[in-house]
């Protein structure tokens, strides 16, 4: 009985569009929103599929076991006896990312704690935009900053340091990542309800004790996702390590030496003109797949860590 369409709108001087058009418009909007949501998922799926597909070709020639155990990586350097061990690239990646995290996590956390718990609003409004600019500096600028400023500066303290080294690249990368850590961590600390702060103050805490013993642990779930994001950025960062870390794929654990990261290798290959379909060309997909696996693992670890240590409020 209500099925009869409205003849005219309830408001005078307005006219409802016919029901058919109204419904169509609504459907259209919903599907546009759905597609927007789907696009990120689809992109991710496409990337993984492409990497898997090309890597599969690669692993037909090179055994998976050799890929993950061989300590030499010479797919291009050595014509006669190329070696395909990812470990040298992995070590370079881990060392540079490790240095970057050693810089960015403490500085970013302390900065977030300062901004959220100590800074006067005026000071915060001044510092936050500057911190955020750090994240906007092009990475190629950071790369040359590492090579031309930080490395020479470090060499005055560490005379043995080479022109190309993972230490300087990692440190500058760390500086670049600081705003990611501080911004997300600050949001997480701001979200901690103020009645917890008041309870801590009422117990006789100093402001630092409130920040460190109550607010930080209460916000650890959000903060750990900031750390994971930082780690993902560090592992995936390309330009700085390409410019400042040297390109020699070798097993390294000492950040003072030079080394190649997975990303730096991919860039190096992509800059050359390798014919499609060759084994050398496919190496970059195997390397890329390794990167994705690392990032995925980081995210999963982060998820569980956050769940395990979450303090619910």
């Amino acid at each position: 009985m209500i099925d009869k369409p409205l003849e005219r709108s309830v408001l005078p001087h307005t006219k409802l569009p016919a029901r058919f058009w109204r419904k169509l418009g609504e459907r259209l909007i919903v599907s546009v929103l759905f597609l927007a949501g789907l696009s990120s998922v689809a992109t991710m799926a496409a990337i993984v599929l492409l990497l898997l597909w090309e890597s599969l070709e690669f692993f037909r020639v090179v055994s998976f076991w050799e890929f993950i155990t061989s300590t030499e990586w010479t797919p291009i350097l050595s014509r006669d006896n190329p070696q395909y061990g990812i470990l040298p690239l992995l070590s370079g990646t881990l060392v540079s990312a490790g240095v970057a995290l050693l810089v960015s996590i403490p500085i970013g956390t302390v900065a977030a704690m300062y901004l959220s718990e100590f800074a006067l609003p005026r000071v915060r409004d001044f510092i936050k935009p500057i911190l955020e600019i750090l994240a906007g500096v092009p990475t190629v600028v950071y790369g040359y900053f590492a090579l031309l400023v930080v490395t020479p500066a470090l060499q005055t303290i560490l005379p043995d340091l080479g022109t190309f080294n993972l230490l300087s690249a990692g440190m500058v990368m760390g500086v670049m990542i600081v705003p990611f850590v501080s911004s997300i961590s600050e949001d997480a600390m701001q979200a901690v309800p103020s009645n917890l702060r008041e309870a801590a103050h009422a117990s006789g805490s100093t402001r630092f004790q409130v920040a460190w013993r109550v607010v930080y642990p209460a916000a650890i779930s959000g903060i750990s996702s900031a750390y994971i994001l930082a780690a993902s950025r560090a592992v995936g960062e390309t330009m700085i390590v390409s410019i400042a870390a040297g390109g020699l794929p070798q097993m390294v654990w000492n950040p003072m030496e030079q080394g190649a990261t997975i990303t730096a290798f991919i860039v190096q290959v992509a800059k050359g003109d390798l014919p499609r379909g060759t084994l050398e060309y496919q190496t970059i997909f195997a390397a890329g797949l390794t990167l994705i696996v690392i990032t995925l693992a980081l995210n999963i670890i982060g998820h569980f860590l956050a769940k395990r240590y979450r303090e619910i409020y």
């Binding site: 309870a199 801590a200 009422a202 117990s203 006789g204 100093t206 303090e311």
Partner: peptide
């Protein structure tokens, strides 16, 4: 001077650590 608030506001910690907190900060 101790204080208790309108809504219960225990810290997101264990029962033990909630009570121990006031001593630990000392």
């Amino acid at each position: 001077v101790g204080m208790v608030f309108q809504r219960p506001n225990p810290f997101p910690k264990s029962i033990y650590e909630n009570v121990a907190y006031s001593l630990r900060v000392r």
